[in-house]
Design a protein around this nucleic acid. Structure first.
Lengths: 189, 189
DNA sequence: GCGTCTACCTAAATCCTGTAGGCAAATCGA
DNA sequence: TCGATTTGCCTACAGGATTTAGGTAGACGC
Protein backbone atom coordinates (compact mmCIF):
# COMPACT_ATOMS: atom_id res chain seq x y z
CA UNK A 1 0.00 0.00 0.00
CA UNK A 2 1.86 3.02 -1.29
CA UNK A 3 1.09 6.24 0.54
CA UNK A 4 -0.24 9.12 -1.51
CA UNK A 5 1.59 11.81 0.42
CA UNK A 6 -1.38 13.98 1.18
CA UNK A 7 -1.25 17.13 3.24
CA UNK A 8 -3.61 20.01 3.90
CA UNK A 9 -1.50 22.18 1.59
CA UNK A 10 -1.51 19.75 -1.34
CA UNK A 11 -5.22 19.18 -0.91
CA UNK A 12 -5.89 22.89 -0.83
CA UNK A 13 -3.87 23.48 -3.96
CA UNK A 14 -5.54 20.62 -5.80
CA UNK A 15 -8.88 21.94 -4.62
CA UNK A 16 -8.03 25.36 -6.05
CA UNK A 17 -7.12 23.80 -9.38
CA UNK A 18 -10.33 21.82 -9.35
CA UNK A 19 -12.25 25.02 -8.64
CA UNK A 20 -10.68 26.76 -11.63
CA UNK A 21 -11.44 23.82 -13.88
CA UNK A 22 -14.95 22.96 -12.76
CA UNK A 23 -16.21 25.75 -10.54
CA UNK A 24 -15.95 26.29 -6.83
CA UNK A 25 -19.20 24.48 -6.13
CA UNK A 26 -17.78 21.35 -7.74
CA UNK A 27 -15.04 21.22 -5.14
CA UNK A 28 -15.97 18.23 -3.01
CA UNK A 29 -13.92 15.90 -0.91
CA UNK A 30 -15.12 13.07 -3.11
CA UNK A 31 -13.81 14.73 -6.25
CA UNK A 32 -10.55 15.48 -4.52
CA UNK A 33 -10.20 11.89 -3.35
CA UNK A 34 -10.73 10.68 -6.90
CA UNK A 35 -8.06 13.08 -8.10
CA UNK A 36 -5.55 11.61 -5.66
CA UNK A 37 -6.85 8.08 -6.22
CA UNK A 38 -7.56 7.72 -2.56
CA UNK A 39 -10.65 6.89 -0.51
CA UNK A 40 -12.69 9.82 0.71
CA UNK A 41 -12.36 8.96 4.38
CA UNK A 42 -8.60 9.33 4.12
CA UNK A 43 -8.95 13.06 3.61
CA UNK A 44 -10.42 13.48 7.05
CA UNK A 45 -7.00 12.87 8.52
CA UNK A 46 -5.87 16.11 6.90
CA UNK A 47 -8.99 18.25 6.89
CA UNK A 48 -11.66 18.57 9.54
CA UNK A 49 -14.44 18.59 6.93
CA UNK A 50 -15.36 19.99 3.55
CA UNK A 51 -15.95 23.40 5.10
CA UNK A 52 -12.31 23.55 6.09
CA UNK A 53 -11.25 22.70 2.56
CA UNK A 54 -13.32 25.53 1.16
CA UNK A 55 -12.06 27.93 3.78
CA UNK A 56 -8.48 27.03 2.99
CA UNK A 57 -9.03 27.55 -0.72
CA UNK A 58 -10.61 30.91 0.03
CA UNK A 59 -7.64 31.95 2.14
CA UNK A 60 -5.23 30.81 -0.57
CA UNK A 61 -7.08 32.83 -3.16
CA UNK A 62 -7.16 35.95 -0.99
CA UNK A 63 -3.44 35.58 -0.40
CA UNK A 64 -2.60 35.13 -4.08
CA UNK A 65 -4.84 37.99 -5.09
CA UNK A 66 -3.33 40.31 -2.50
CA UNK A 67 0.15 39.35 -3.69
CA UNK A 68 -0.66 40.08 -7.30
CA UNK A 69 -2.30 43.38 -6.46
CA UNK A 70 0.63 44.40 -4.25
CA UNK A 71 3.05 43.56 -7.02
CA UNK A 72 1.04 45.43 -9.62
CA UNK A 73 0.66 48.54 -7.51
CA UNK A 74 4.23 48.75 -6.29
CA UNK A 75 5.86 52.04 -7.29
CA UNK A 76 2.72 53.54 -8.75
CA UNK A 77 0.48 56.33 -7.58
CA UNK A 78 -2.70 58.15 -8.52
CA UNK A 79 -4.60 56.99 -11.53
CA UNK A 80 -1.73 54.78 -12.51
CA UNK A 81 -2.03 52.87 -9.25
CA UNK A 82 -5.81 52.71 -9.53
CA UNK A 83 -5.59 51.16 -12.97
CA UNK A 84 -2.91 48.68 -11.90
CA UNK A 85 -4.95 47.67 -8.87
CA UNK A 86 -8.15 47.22 -10.84
CA UNK A 87 -6.44 45.32 -13.64
CA UNK A 88 -4.68 42.97 -11.26
CA UNK A 89 -8.01 42.27 -9.68
CA UNK A 90 -9.82 41.61 -12.92
CA UNK A 91 -6.96 39.63 -14.41
CA UNK A 92 -6.93 37.31 -11.44
CA UNK A 93 -10.67 36.78 -11.68
CA UNK A 94 -10.34 35.91 -15.36
CA UNK A 95 -7.32 33.67 -14.98
CA UNK A 96 -8.63 31.87 -11.90
CA UNK A 97 -12.42 31.98 -11.91
CA UNK A 98 -12.78 29.21 -9.36
CA UNK A 99 -10.26 30.70 -6.98
CA UNK A 100 -11.84 34.09 -7.42
CA UNK A 101 -15.21 32.63 -6.51
CA UNK A 102 -13.55 31.04 -3.52
CA UNK A 103 -12.19 34.41 -2.44
CA UNK A 104 -15.80 35.51 -2.03
CA UNK A 105 -16.58 32.52 0.15
CA UNK A 106 -18.09 33.70 3.38
CA UNK A 107 -15.55 33.33 6.16
CA UNK A 108 -16.44 33.55 9.80
CA UNK A 109 -15.34 36.90 11.26
CA UNK A 110 -12.33 35.58 13.16
CA UNK A 111 -10.93 33.84 10.09
CA UNK A 112 -11.65 36.84 7.92
CA UNK A 113 -9.84 39.15 10.31
CA UNK A 114 -6.73 36.97 10.10
CA UNK A 115 -6.89 36.61 6.33
CA UNK A 116 -5.27 38.50 3.50
CA UNK A 117 -8.58 40.31 3.15
CA UNK A 118 -7.13 42.83 5.55
CA UNK A 119 -4.30 43.55 3.10
CA UNK A 120 -6.86 44.18 0.39
CA UNK A 121 -8.50 46.87 2.45
CA UNK A 122 -5.14 48.42 3.30
CA UNK A 123 -4.04 48.48 -0.32
CA UNK A 124 -7.29 50.05 -1.41
CA UNK A 125 -6.78 52.81 1.14
CA UNK A 126 -3.21 53.21 -0.07
CA UNK A 127 -4.45 53.79 -3.61
CA UNK A 128 -6.79 56.44 -2.37
CA UNK A 129 -4.01 58.43 -0.74
CA UNK A 130 -3.29 59.78 -4.19
CA UNK A 131 -6.76 61.30 -4.30
CA UNK A 132 -6.52 63.23 -1.08
CA UNK A 133 -9.78 62.13 0.48
CA UNK A 134 -10.64 62.76 4.10
CA UNK A 135 -12.69 60.43 6.27
CA UNK A 136 -15.43 59.37 5.90
CA UNK A 137 -15.05 59.91 2.17
CA UNK A 138 -12.16 57.50 2.08
CA UNK A 139 -14.30 54.74 3.52
CA UNK A 140 -17.04 55.50 1.05
CA UNK A 141 -14.52 55.34 -1.76
CA UNK A 142 -13.14 52.01 -0.54
CA UNK A 143 -16.66 50.61 -0.68
CA UNK A 144 -17.39 52.07 -4.07
CA UNK A 145 -14.22 50.72 -5.61
CA UNK A 146 -14.71 47.33 -4.01
CA UNK A 147 -18.22 47.19 -5.38
CA UNK A 148 -17.20 48.08 -8.90
CA UNK A 149 -14.27 45.72 -9.09
CA UNK A 150 -16.16 42.87 -7.56
CA UNK A 151 -19.35 43.56 -9.44
CA UNK A 152 -17.60 43.84 -12.77
CA UNK A 153 -15.60 40.67 -12.28
CA UNK A 154 -18.72 38.86 -11.23
CA UNK A 155 -20.92 39.96 -14.09
CA UNK A 156 -18.15 39.34 -16.57
CA UNK A 157 -17.60 35.84 -15.21
CA UNK A 158 -21.34 35.19 -15.44
CA UNK A 159 -21.19 36.05 -19.12
CA UNK A 160 -23.30 39.14 -18.68
CA UNK A 161 -21.19 41.22 -21.03
CA UNK A 162 -21.06 38.91 -23.98
CA UNK A 163 -24.33 39.75 -25.68
CA UNK A 164 -23.37 42.96 -27.39
CA UNK A 165 -20.37 43.45 -29.59
CA UNK A 166 -18.92 46.19 -27.43
CA UNK A 167 -15.72 44.74 -26.05
CA UNK A 168 -15.64 44.21 -22.32
CA UNK A 169 -12.12 45.59 -22.21
CA UNK A 170 -13.30 48.96 -23.49
CA UNK A 171 -16.07 49.16 -20.94
CA UNK A 172 -13.57 48.34 -18.26
CA UNK A 173 -11.22 51.15 -19.24
CA UNK A 174 -14.16 53.53 -19.58
CA UNK A 175 -15.36 52.57 -16.10
CA UNK A 176 -11.94 53.10 -14.57
CA UNK A 177 -11.60 56.48 -16.27
CA UNK A 178 -14.97 57.45 -14.84
CA UNK A 179 -14.00 56.33 -11.37
CA UNK A 180 -10.75 58.22 -11.54
CA UNK A 181 -12.59 61.37 -12.56
CA UNK A 182 -15.17 60.89 -9.83
CA UNK A 183 -12.48 60.47 -7.20
CA UNK A 184 -10.52 63.49 -8.38
CA UNK A 185 -13.74 65.44 -8.10
CA UNK A 186 -14.01 64.47 -4.45
CA UNK A 187 -10.51 65.56 -3.53
CA UNK A 188 -10.26 68.15 -0.79
CA UNK A 189 -8.38 71.15 -2.18
CA UNK B 1 -54.94 10.29 1.45
CA UNK B 2 -55.46 14.05 1.24
CA UNK B 3 -53.69 15.74 -1.64
CA UNK B 4 -51.32 18.53 -0.82
CA UNK B 5 -52.24 20.67 -3.81
CA UNK B 6 -48.75 21.18 -5.15
CA UNK B 7 -47.98 23.03 -8.33
CA UNK B 8 -44.84 24.39 -9.94
CA UNK B 9 -45.93 27.88 -8.89
CA UNK B 10 -46.51 27.04 -5.24
CA UNK B 11 -43.26 25.13 -5.11
CA UNK B 12 -41.39 28.00 -6.66
CA UNK B 13 -42.83 30.49 -4.20
CA UNK B 14 -42.08 28.26 -1.24
CA UNK B 15 -38.59 27.77 -2.60
CA UNK B 16 -38.14 31.52 -2.79
CA UNK B 17 -39.25 31.89 0.82
CA UNK B 18 -36.90 29.14 1.85
CA UNK B 19 -34.09 30.91 0.01
CA UNK B 20 -34.74 34.14 1.89
CA UNK B 21 -34.82 32.32 5.20
CA UNK B 22 -31.91 29.97 4.81
CA UNK B 23 -29.96 30.97 1.71
CA UNK B 24 -30.32 29.97 -1.90
CA UNK B 25 -27.92 27.08 -1.56
CA UNK B 26 -30.18 25.57 1.10
CA UNK B 27 -32.99 25.30 -1.41
CA UNK B 28 -33.31 21.58 -2.02
CA UNK B 29 -36.17 19.40 -3.11
CA UNK B 30 -35.84 17.56 0.18
CA UNK B 31 -36.29 20.70 2.23
CA UNK B 32 -39.22 21.71 0.09
CA UNK B 33 -40.85 18.30 0.49
CA UNK B 34 -40.51 18.59 4.26
CA UNK B 35 -42.11 22.01 4.15
CA UNK B 36 -45.14 20.60 2.36
CA UNK B 37 -45.10 17.41 4.42
CA UNK B 38 -44.82 15.35 1.31
CA UNK B 39 -42.37 12.77 0.02
CA UNK B 40 -39.55 14.03 -2.15
CA UNK B 41 -40.43 11.89 -5.13
CA UNK B 42 -43.81 13.59 -5.32
CA UNK B 43 -42.16 16.83 -6.36
CA UNK B 44 -40.87 15.27 -9.53
CA UNK B 45 -44.40 15.31 -10.90
CA UNK B 46 -44.24 19.09 -10.86
CA UNK B 47 -40.58 19.85 -11.50
CA UNK B 48 -38.18 18.11 -13.81
CA UNK B 49 -35.38 18.27 -11.26
CA UNK B 50 -33.79 20.58 -8.73
CA UNK B 51 -32.22 22.61 -11.51
CA UNK B 52 -35.67 23.54 -12.74
CA UNK B 53 -36.68 24.63 -9.26
CA UNK B 54 -33.69 26.92 -9.02
CA UNK B 55 -34.27 28.29 -12.49
CA UNK B 56 -37.90 29.05 -11.67
CA UNK B 57 -36.92 30.84 -8.47
CA UNK B 58 -34.36 32.84 -10.42
CA UNK B 59 -36.97 33.85 -12.98
CA UNK B 60 -39.41 34.79 -10.23
CA UNK B 61 -36.79 36.97 -8.56
CA UNK B 62 -35.85 38.68 -11.83
CA UNK B 63 -39.51 39.38 -12.47
CA UNK B 64 -40.16 40.79 -9.02
CA UNK B 65 -37.03 42.89 -9.12
CA UNK B 66 -37.88 44.29 -12.54
CA UNK B 67 -41.38 45.13 -11.33
CA UNK B 68 -40.10 46.97 -8.29
CA UNK B 69 -37.53 48.88 -10.29
CA UNK B 70 -40.09 49.80 -12.93
CA UNK B 71 -42.45 51.06 -10.25
CA UNK B 72 -39.73 53.04 -8.51
CA UNK B 73 -38.50 54.68 -11.69
CA UNK B 74 -41.88 55.56 -13.13
CA UNK B 75 -42.23 59.26 -13.71
CA UNK B 76 -38.68 60.12 -12.75
CA UNK B 77 -35.72 61.25 -14.81
CA UNK B 78 -32.08 62.14 -14.46
CA UNK B 79 -30.42 61.74 -11.10
CA UNK B 80 -33.79 61.23 -9.51
CA UNK B 81 -34.38 58.18 -11.66
CA UNK B 82 -30.88 56.89 -11.08
CA UNK B 83 -31.34 57.05 -7.31
CA UNK B 84 -34.75 55.41 -7.47
CA UNK B 85 -33.41 52.62 -9.66
CA UNK B 86 -30.43 52.00 -7.44
CA UNK B 87 -32.43 52.08 -4.25
CA UNK B 88 -35.06 49.71 -5.57
CA UNK B 89 -32.27 47.35 -6.47
CA UNK B 90 -30.54 47.53 -3.12
CA UNK B 91 -33.79 47.40 -1.17
CA UNK B 92 -34.80 44.24 -2.92
CA UNK B 93 -31.44 42.65 -2.20
CA UNK B 94 -31.76 43.51 1.47
CA UNK B 95 -35.38 42.47 1.83
CA UNK B 96 -34.97 39.24 -0.12
CA UNK B 97 -31.37 38.08 0.10
CA UNK B 98 -32.15 34.56 -1.04
CA UNK B 99 -34.21 35.67 -4.00
CA UNK B 100 -31.55 38.20 -4.89
CA UNK B 101 -28.95 35.47 -4.85
CA UNK B 102 -31.27 33.45 -7.03
CA UNK B 103 -31.51 36.32 -9.51
CA UNK B 104 -27.77 35.85 -10.09
CA UNK B 105 -28.23 32.16 -10.80
CA UNK B 106 -26.68 31.32 -14.10
CA UNK B 107 -29.39 30.70 -16.65
CA UNK B 108 -28.79 29.09 -19.98
CA UNK B 109 -28.80 31.69 -22.78
CA UNK B 110 -32.23 30.80 -24.17
CA UNK B 111 -33.88 31.05 -20.77
CA UNK B 112 -32.05 34.26 -19.98
CA UNK B 113 -33.17 35.83 -23.23
CA UNK B 114 -36.79 35.10 -22.35
CA UNK B 115 -36.46 36.32 -18.77
CA UNK B 116 -37.12 39.64 -17.11
CA UNK B 117 -33.36 40.20 -17.30
CA UNK B 118 -34.09 41.83 -20.63
CA UNK B 119 -36.32 44.39 -18.92
CA UNK B 120 -33.50 45.19 -16.51
CA UNK B 121 -31.22 46.06 -19.36
CA UNK B 122 -33.90 48.16 -21.02
CA UNK B 123 -34.64 50.06 -17.84
CA UNK B 124 -30.99 50.76 -17.25
CA UNK B 125 -30.73 52.21 -20.72
CA UNK B 126 -33.86 54.26 -20.06
CA UNK B 127 -32.26 55.79 -16.99
CA UNK B 128 -29.26 56.77 -19.02
CA UNK B 129 -31.29 58.68 -21.53
CA UNK B 130 -31.29 61.51 -19.03
CA UNK B 131 -27.51 61.67 -19.29
CA UNK B 132 -27.33 62.08 -23.00
CA UNK B 133 -24.75 59.43 -23.73
CA UNK B 134 -23.99 58.17 -27.22
CA UNK B 135 -22.99 54.64 -28.08
CA UNK B 136 -20.74 52.96 -27.09
CA UNK B 137 -20.66 55.09 -23.95
CA UNK B 138 -24.17 54.04 -23.11
CA UNK B 139 -23.17 50.39 -23.12
CA UNK B 140 -20.15 51.16 -20.99
CA UNK B 141 -22.37 53.00 -18.55
CA UNK B 142 -24.86 50.12 -18.40
CA UNK B 143 -22.02 47.84 -17.43
CA UNK B 144 -20.59 50.22 -14.88
CA UNK B 145 -23.92 50.78 -13.18
CA UNK B 146 -24.71 47.07 -13.18
CA UNK B 147 -21.33 46.36 -11.64
CA UNK B 148 -21.73 48.91 -8.88
CA UNK B 149 -25.26 47.94 -7.95
CA UNK B 150 -24.54 44.27 -8.02
CA UNK B 151 -21.19 44.58 -6.34
CA UNK B 152 -22.51 46.77 -3.58
CA UNK B 153 -25.48 44.52 -2.86
CA UNK B 154 -23.21 41.54 -2.84
CA UNK B 155 -20.58 42.93 -0.52
CA UNK B 156 -23.20 44.34 1.77
CA UNK B 157 -24.98 40.99 1.94
CA UNK B 158 -21.68 39.30 2.71
CA UNK B 159 -21.25 41.59 5.68
CA UNK B 160 -18.28 43.32 4.15
CA UNK B 161 -19.38 46.76 5.27
CA UNK B 162 -20.06 46.05 8.90
CA UNK B 163 -16.56 46.36 10.29
CA UNK B 164 -16.25 50.11 10.48
CA UNK B 165 -18.75 52.43 12.05
CA UNK B 166 -19.35 54.35 8.86
CA UNK B 167 -22.97 53.64 7.96
CA UNK B 168 -23.50 51.68 4.77
CA UNK B 169 -26.35 53.96 3.85
CA UNK B 170 -24.02 56.96 3.71
CA UNK B 171 -21.55 55.16 1.51
CA UNK B 172 -24.39 54.18 -0.77
CA UNK B 173 -25.57 57.76 -1.19
CA UNK B 174 -22.00 58.94 -1.66
CA UNK B 175 -21.46 56.30 -4.32
CA UNK B 176 -24.62 57.25 -6.19
CA UNK B 177 -23.66 60.92 -6.06
CA UNK B 178 -20.29 60.04 -7.51
CA UNK B 179 -21.83 57.98 -10.28
CA UNK B 180 -24.24 60.74 -11.14
CA UNK B 181 -21.40 63.21 -11.38
CA UNK B 182 -19.34 60.83 -13.46
CA UNK B 183 -22.20 60.29 -15.89
CA UNK B 184 -22.95 63.98 -16.21
CA UNK B 185 -19.31 64.46 -17.02
CA UNK B 186 -19.63 62.05 -19.91
CA UNK B 187 -22.63 63.74 -21.47
CA UNK B 188 -22.22 64.88 -25.04
CA UNK B 189 -22.85 68.61 -25.12
C1' DG C 1 14.33 -5.02 15.88
C1' DC C 2 10.50 -3.09 18.61
C1' DG C 3 7.04 0.01 19.67
C1' DT C 4 4.63 3.98 18.40
C1' DC C 5 2.61 7.06 15.33
C1' DT C 6 0.09 8.05 11.46
C1' DA C 7 -1.52 7.58 6.70
C1' DC C 8 -4.77 5.25 4.56
C1' DC C 9 -8.28 1.68 4.68
C1' DT C 10 -13.23 -0.68 5.23
C1' DA C 11 -17.73 -0.23 6.94
C1' DA C 12 -21.69 2.12 7.92
C1' DA C 13 -25.07 6.03 8.94
C1' DT C 14 -27.27 10.02 7.03
C1' DC C 15 -28.81 13.01 3.51
C1' DC C 16 -29.81 14.60 -1.25
C1' DT C 17 -31.03 13.57 -6.17
C1' DG C 18 -33.43 10.98 -9.42
C1' DT C 19 -36.13 6.82 -11.63
C1' DA C 20 -39.71 3.17 -11.85
C1' DG C 21 -43.84 1.54 -10.88
C1' DG C 22 -48.30 1.43 -7.99
C1' DC C 23 -52.66 3.04 -5.85
C1' DA C 24 -56.24 6.13 -5.09
C1' DA C 25 -58.38 10.63 -5.73
C1' DA C 26 -60.06 13.75 -9.13
C1' DT C 27 -62.14 14.44 -13.36
C1' DC C 28 -64.57 13.73 -17.54
C1' DG C 29 -67.70 11.42 -20.93
C1' DA C 30 -71.74 8.96 -21.62
C1' DT D 1 -74.32 8.59 -11.84
C1' DC D 2 -71.05 5.25 -13.21
C1' DG D 3 -66.88 3.77 -15.56
C1' DA D 4 -62.53 5.06 -17.70
C1' DT D 5 -58.75 7.96 -17.72
C1' DT D 6 -55.71 11.09 -15.87
C1' DT D 7 -52.90 12.62 -12.35
C1' DG D 8 -51.14 13.45 -7.57
C1' DC D 9 -48.78 11.34 -4.23
C1' DC D 10 -46.91 7.06 -2.66
C1' DT D 11 -43.15 3.10 -1.82
C1' DA D 12 -38.93 1.20 -3.22
C1' DC D 13 -34.56 1.62 -4.79
C1' DA D 14 -30.02 3.18 -6.75
C1' DG D 15 -26.27 6.45 -6.79
C1' DG D 16 -23.39 9.92 -4.82
C1' DA D 17 -21.68 13.17 -0.98
C1' DT D 18 -20.50 13.89 3.96
C1' DT D 19 -18.91 12.27 8.17
C1' DT D 20 -17.67 8.98 12.05
C1' DA D 21 -15.64 4.71 14.05
C1' DG D 22 -12.45 1.54 14.12
C1' DG D 23 -8.71 -1.38 11.78
C1' DT D 24 -4.13 -2.33 9.32
C1' DA D 25 0.23 -1.51 7.53
C1' DG D 26 4.02 1.59 6.40
C1' DA D 27 7.31 5.08 8.48
C1' DC D 28 10.15 6.38 12.10
C1' DG D 29 12.46 6.94 16.79
C1' DC D 30 15.16 4.32 20.01
Amino acid sequence: MVRAGLSPERLTLAGAELADEAGFDQVTLSALARRFDVKVASLYSHLKNSQELKTRIALLALEELADQVAHAVAGRAGKDALMAFANAYRDYARAHPGRYEAARFRLDPRTAAASAGVRHAQMTRAILRGYNLTEPDQTHAVRMLGSVFHGYANLEAAGGFSHTDVASQESWVWTLDSLDAALRNRATP
